[in-house]
Design a protein around this nucleic acid. Structure first.
Lengths: 139, 139
DNA sequence: TCAAATTTGCATCCATGTTGCAAAAGTAAT
DNA sequence: ATTACTTTTGCAACATGGATGCAAATTTGA
């Protein structure tokens, strides 16, 4: 009956309070179905949404492994990270400089197995920037 | 006789005024020999250096193809880009989250020839983050 | 050397991210 | 359901990084 039960359960499973705010955030990330930026989330949540609260919750949700930041830049792009379809980081992300959306290009992958000794890798990114089809043709 | 003649010539060749400021910037980028960030440049140029002037000149030098930004993030990392040893963008960059330095790892490369149609690629980056040998052992 | 053009340095603004804290919401026990 | 307790939210304030406008200084070229 509760359409938000899904998100409430995820939060509870990770020992986090199931607040309205967090449920809304998870729902938006889930619905959009691709890595979403802080600013796009702010837009979707409404203009009155507090930036601080969103940033703090994104950080908490990351720490509790409920979501994941899949982009190296400060602001980041977030995806859900639970159950079966974990986001594989070793494919290419294409960021459109016009619409600011991030596309996953699974055709292009790379690996870091050949990295020289001494480098302690925490995260790895394959990133392209340019314009997506929609933005290229609309000009 | 003029130790800075080299940089003066580069600027002139590209029809840019050979100002003291630009000569100092080019010299620092040349000396450090690896991609250098805005903040590290500010440090090297001295605490009194004006941020705006540096940013504006880095942008101009990029536009005139004298230097190149080899990192996708806002602040960026800059290298000289003239003559023989142009920086090849398709190798891995390792950014140390401790000392903030960027290392070029030529052992790891990738290519974007298999990118699906419709994506108009302007720039491409292979980026790893973590701690370098020096920073890993000094903790 | 001097006038014209360009560049610099400063003031100011804007966007983005952080911290502290009182008020509000969520939780768990009765 | 009410209560007491804990956590979270929303706001104010601050910090950093980047951009613009403009007068003063530097550079250029005749």
């Amino acid at each position: 009956m509760d359409a938000n039960l899904k998100y409430r359960k995820i939060l509870k499973r990770h020992n986090l309070s199931a607040t309205q705010f967090r449920i809304r955030v998870l729902k938006e990330i889930d619905i959009v179905g691709r890595p979403i930026s802080r600013n796009e989330l702010l837009d979707k949540l409404g203009i009155k949404t507090d930036r601080v609260t969103l940033y703090r919750n994104l950080q908490i949700l990351c720490e509790f492994n409920i979501i994941e930041n899949v982009d190296p830049e400060g602001s980041g792009f977030f995806v859900l990270k639970y159950g079966k379809k974990a986001h594989d980081l070793h494919h290419l992300h294409f960021e459109c400089t016009e619409c600011k959306k991030l596309y996953c290009i699974h055709e292009i992958v790379s690996d870091i197995s050949k990295i020289p000794a001494g480098f302690n890798v925490d995260s790895f990114y394959l990133l392209a920037k340019g314009t997506c089809e929609a933005c290229s043709t609309n000009n």
